[in-house]
Design a protein around this nucleic acid. Structure first.
Length: 667
RNA sequence: GACCGCUUAGCUCAGCUGGUAGAGCAACUGACUUUUAAUCAGUAGGUCGAGGGUUCGGAUCCCUCAGCGGUCACCA
């Protein structure tokens, strides 16, 4: 291949183009750079184990075939580190055992390529177990250059977005995700061994419940119904206990919560929930303690682990203390001695925990615990007897009606598990749901919905049952010394990358499909009011309310006038008691939202063009004098020079929600 | 959602109070070699996240935007 490099226009000093060039050379030689099959006799770890006792310099005649990714090449390809999923093995390519053709081939190999190699086993005089190669085969030519071999890949974004690169380069990432698999496998086996059965319950739930959290909402077209992605599988699992499917059931699966992302929170995460007939919460403490302790031992071979600077001991019997006792221990405040909610709020205030008046006794206790105690629960601790008003699904405490038979297990200051003797009195459960609904009406977005069918299930009879849930991601974090939940999730939730394609440059006030729509009115009864809507976005930077109202009016009028010609838009004449007629042009909801600034509006407008959503907009150049002057003023500006006062969109509810869902209401 | 910080070569990073953009690794050419982040000599590689402003002059200062990170808020 002498001087053949001149026959290319590629810039060979660019790593990527150099790889392309080598690919073309392979093809020219008639070599398939992506063959279907290579029969390997050993994995790297097999070889390392089998020949562990080989002395330095010792050689065998055993022929092996190995395959893996080239992670290092030394001495012009004489020494190649081949890495597979099990380990690394060095392959030794020397002219003594390779013919010229085979040696030439090496020049077309790069870091990152996946190759197969055949040869005999030897340990080099310096002690590296190697395959003395007679021939190699290209198995997969890689075209993307690998990150720096010393520093690896440290850019966090790339690490999570392109996890495959992270995994190739960073052994810790591989180890962490492998440990995750091992941990979950162990827990599953433990649950199976104790006779509970694994079940799967719906991710799509018509009624949201089982935990206090904001849900994701989605829509099923054929059923024309909204569903919530479950925030917890709890209520479904207990129905199975009612049915007597088994004395114990468990589910390992995903939960979805539409909340903030942090080092400890991912919008979708994995939990295990288990329900056991005839268990109470004491039995659950024993269960969780035993399960976690054995898992730690399985992974680390000991019950003591180090997380960051903390040493955590899972071996000792775990501390069990009531929430109020712990609060007293850490703050000196005795909430059990306080009767009313107002006194509780006052008491919390003495230690600087401020809560709005009207906060219930239990909510105060829970809040004070979160603020003042939670972070101190480093060693495994069962925090028992949570207040009844923050535990709508737990059974009332056998000794104190203000409390429930519920506990949370804390480790390293994190809540790892949550468990209780299940509330199985259908009447009380109904009342608890009503309280939640009331909270929801008062603006608590996390309040649970009333699940009438669940109450019905309880009416058939749920035996005394203990139920628990554990966040597996957090457990994996603890056992792998990971401080960020993203490290233990293969593909953590990230904001999608914005597409680079620019929106059409020609401003177009009404999209074509709308204009071309048929021009006939329809009877309002045949129209689905919920399917479409108007959304008006106004500029939050504009200080003049009058100008905003003006913008709302203009955009609305412009757009309504046009979309009114669509088939499913109709006029409705409202008649009052006196027979007076009030004609209305808008049959659909109108929602007014506030955008941060003009540029945000422009973004939405660009997307609307791209998605063919009807809109009209209103810029401040349209407020100058008469139409002629407005035209002139507008013509002098484009792009971000235009200051948008408002934008009115009309279209499919979900499509609009995608565009404007993040904006807040204009008040 | 609020505040703070970051964005420079394929990768990891320097670049001070404004004055012609730097290193290591990777790549390329060659030398040498039983190496372990091999070594040596040489070559090439950048619209300094985007846009605007101040200035004779901006990677550097100011503003806007985007992405990412951190802290807090929210959150079991």
């Amino acid at each position: 291949m002498t001087n053949t490099k001149k026959d290319t226009d590629l810039d060979l000093t660019d790593p990527r183009q150099a790889k392309e060039y080598k690919l073309s050379q392979l093809l020219e030689k008639g070599i398939n750079p992506y063959p279907a099959k290579f029969d390997r006799t050993h994995k790297a770890a097999d070889i390392q184990a089998k020949y562990d006792s080989l002395e330095n310099g010792e050689e065998t005649t055993d022929v092996v075939r190995v395959a893996g990714r080239i992670m290092a090449m030394r001495n012009n390809g004489m020494f190649i580190d081949l890495v597979d999923a099990t380990d690394k093995v060095q392959v030794f390519c020397h002219k003594d055992t390779m013919n010229e053709e085979a040696l030439e081939l090496l020049k077309l190999y790069d870091l990152g390529d996946i190759i197969g190699a055949e040869g005999t086993i030897r340990r080099t005089p310096r002690g590296e177990l190697s395959v003395r190669v007679t021939s190699t085969v290209m198995l997969t030519k890689s075209l993307a250059p690998l990150p720096n071999k010393h520093e690896g890949l440290t850019d966090v974004e790339t690490k999570y977005r392109q996890r495959y690169v992270d995994l190739i380069v960073n052994e810790e990432s591989r180890d962490t995700l492998r440990a995750r698999s091992k941990i979950i496998r162990f827990i599953r086996n433990y649950m199976d061994d104790m006779g509970t059965i694994e079940v799967e319950t719906p991710n799509l739930q018509a009624i949201m419940g089982g935990a206090s959290a904001k849900p994701f909402v989605t829509h099923h077209n054929a059923l024309d119904s909204n569903f919530y992605l479950r925030v917890a599988p709890e209520l479904a699992l207990k129905r199975l206990i009612v049915g007597g499917l088994a004395d114990g059931v468990y589910e390992i699966g995903r939960c979805f919560r539409n909340e903030g992302i942090s080092m400890k929170h991912n919008p979708e995460f994995t939990s295990i929930e288990g329900y056991h007939a005839y268990y109470d919460y004491y039995d659950l403490m024993d269960l969780i303690e035993d399960l976690v302790r054995k898992t730690v031992e399985h992974i680390h071979g000991t019950t003591k682990i180090t997380f960051g600077a903390q040493e955590i001991d899972f071996g000792q019997p775990w501390r069990r203390a009531s929430m109020c006792d712990l609060i007293q221990e850490y703050t000196g405040l005795d909430f059990m001695a306080v009767e009313t909610a107002q006194d509780a709020v006052e008491l919390a205030k003495t230690k600087g925990v401020k809560l709005p008046d009207g906060t219930s006794w239990g909510a105060v206790v829970a809040e004070v615990f979160d603020e003042r105690c939670e972070a101190k629960m480093i060693q495994p601790t069962h925090v028992m007897d949570m207040p009844v008003d923050v535990s709508p699904l737990a059974k009332i405490h056998r000794d104190d009606a203000r409390l429930t038979e519920r506990f949370e297990t804390y480790i390293n200051g994190w809540e790892i598990a949550n468990a209780f003797s299940e509330l199985n009195d259908p009447k009380i459960q109904g009342l608890r749901f009503d309280e939640q609904v009331e909270l929801g009406k008062n603006g608590d977005e996390e309040a649970q919905m009333k699940d009438d069918d669940y109450v019905t299930a309880l009416e058939y009879g749920l035996p005394p049952t203990g139920g628990w849930g554990m966040g597996l991601d957090r457990l994996v974090m603890l056992l792998t010394n990971s401080s960020n939940i993203r490290d233990v999730i293969c593909f953590p939730t990230l904001k999608p990358l914005k597409e680079e394609n620019e929106a059409p440059q020609n401003p177009q006030s009404i999209s074509a499909p709308v204009v071309e729509a048929a021009r006939s009115a329809t009877d309002y009864q045949s129209v689905d009011e919920d399917a479409r809507r108007f959304v008006i976005v106004v500029n939050g930077k504009e200080e003049s309310t009058a100008r905003l109202m003006n913008a709302i009016g203009h955009t609305m009028a412009g757009l309504a006038g046009d979309v009114a010609t669509k088939q499913d838009f109709c006029f409705v004449d409202y008649q009052d008691a006196d027979g007076g007629v009030h004609p209305s042009v808008s049959h659909y909801p109108v929602i007014v939202l506030k955008a941060k600034n003009s540029n945000k509006i422009k973004n939405i407008r660009d997307q609307a063009i791209e998605k063919n959503i009807a809109f009209t907009d209103f810029t401040d150049t349209m407020t100058i004098g008469k139409t002629q002057e407005q035209l002139a003023a507008t013509q002098n500006q484009c792009g971000e020079e235009l200051n948008y006062l408002g934008l009115c969109l009309f279209g499919d509810r979900d499509a609009l929600s995608e565009l404007t869902g993040k904006l807040s209401l204009y008040k």
